[in-house]
Design a protein around this nucleic acid. Structure first.
Lengths: 158, 158
DNA sequence: TCACATTGGTTGACATGGAAACTAGATAGG
DNA sequence: CCTATCTAGTTTCCATGTCAACCAATGTGA
């Protein structure tokens, strides 16, 4: 124990007083619901995000994926291994740098994305169906404000 | 927008088209920021939630905590072990049922909560400071709507 | 009362991510 | 060139959660 910078007594507010807490509650519920649907396709949330990140674009090096997905390079390395085992992505050596390589979708991976995208659409629609169009739009607007305010650029995977 | 590759089965929308995705992004950022502050007090997010759940109330059995916190009883069991080791909570045998017991805060645990609560307040305020009061209130309202719509039970039941 | 189902908790096998050590291949400076 | 330093990725260790098997105490019904 270092500096016992002890705070004077502080009122202990309820957990639900924190918007961040509410946020986490709702976010976890959405993610769990979606993860459940993905599980039926033998895909995890993180795997879906990586597959989506590789879909319709050029092959990407793990380092870039790590930044895009907000994960460490170690995590990306293992995640890529799993997708490689499942035959959904492939590695391509970089001819200019023998340390590096790029990741891309296999035919099987490409074929799988649309089905997963449909699940994502359905899952999202189902969860937010309780909101009116106006509410839904408002929510998205607020989230974007926060994303901009904090310059969030990564795709969390929890 | 989504370009080049044809959609065999389903149009592949962008990740950020999903409100659930935006929620994860923001929620993740809030939680990480708060977790960082908590780490300075040698407390994890899960530990904080349990400490807060036990603060100012009667001792609670692990089963109830599991429901309140949205975790499995196995996770609660281990989490309780950690807090026990840290001396922040204590177990009390249930005289009516020898299988059961209750968890409560120790003096040390009680003493620690207000400081953590202040961190929670500060962290939350800092994150949402970019929103106007009206926006903030609107966001909370929308989150509550979703929580109600899905009967997210990470709450009470006394 | 006794065999059996149920329930409160714990434990062990996995899964998965972060941090940091480590490896191999690039690069810069002298 | 040669060595010191970077850099891309991998691997190891650790933390933490889920799931399922398991243990012990309770409850139940004939």
């Amino acid at each position: 124990m270092s500096t016992n910078v002890m705070s004077p007594m502080h009122p202990v507010s309820d957990l639900s007083a924190h918007t961040g807490f509410l946020m986490r509650m709702v976010s976890n519920a959405v993610s769990q619901g979606f993860a459940g649907k993905l599980a039926g396709q033998d895909v995890t949330l993180a795997e879906w995000v990586m597959l989506r990140a590789l879909y319709g674009g050029k092959p990407l090096p793990p380092s870039l994926l790590a930044r895009k997905m907000g994960m460490t390079k170690g995590a990306i390395s293992k995640l890529a291994d799993r997708l490689l085992d499942k035959g959904l992505i492939a590695r391509t050596d970089n001819p200019n740098d023998k340390r590096a390589h790029s990741l891309s979708l296999t035919h099987e991976g490409i074929a799988k994305v649309p089905a997963l995208a449909r699940l994502a659409d359905e899952s999202d629609a189902a969860f937010f169906i309780g909101l009116s169009d106006a509410d839904h739009a408002a929510l998205r607007g607020l989230l974007h404000k926060l994303i901009n305010a904090h310059a969030l650029t990564t795709a969390p995977v929890e």
